[in-house]
């Protein structure tokens, strides 16, 4: 975790690209339309990548198994989601479960 480096150039590149996606429609919509197929593609791509991030950051830490405490905390979050708990309860529930398991010696 000590090597957490996010260069300002990376942040600005992400910001510029994101702004380009956002501003294209409002500036060009008189001359261009997007097909529903393309719209569906963008939305699905976002969902797929997010779930992939959830799974890998739940199970792995730096390419190796992260231990049991973290996946069990995320499992608690999923249970709280399906119990229709509000967002803060889901997130804090996950952190407390993982922290609690670690306090009892579960890595």
């Amino acid at each position: 975790m000590s090597s957490a480096v996010m260069p300002i150039s990376a942040i600005l590149a992400l910001a510029a690209g994101t702004y380009a996606f956002r501003v294209a429609g409002p500036l060009l919509h008189d001359r261009l339309t997007l097909s529903p197929a393309l719209q569906k593609l963008f939305t699905t791509a976002a969902v797929i990548m997010l779930l992939s991030l959830v799974i890998s950051s739940t199970i792995l830490d730096g390419g190796a198994f992260a231990g049991w405490a973290r996946p069990l905390g995320v499992a608690a979050a999923a249970a709280l989601y399906f119990a229709k708990m509000p967002f803060p309860v889901i997130v804090i529930g996950a952190a407390l479960t993982t922290a609690g398991l670690r306090a009892f010696g579960v890595a």
């Binding site: 429609g25 963008f42 390419g63």
Partner: peptide, 24 residues
Amino acid sequence: AGGSPLAAVLAGLILNARHLPFGF
């Protein structure tokens, strides 16, 4: 997770591509 800034920017940009249809 140990990835490069380039991979981080690419992942973020692909996620934000959905703003393109939103904008239209």
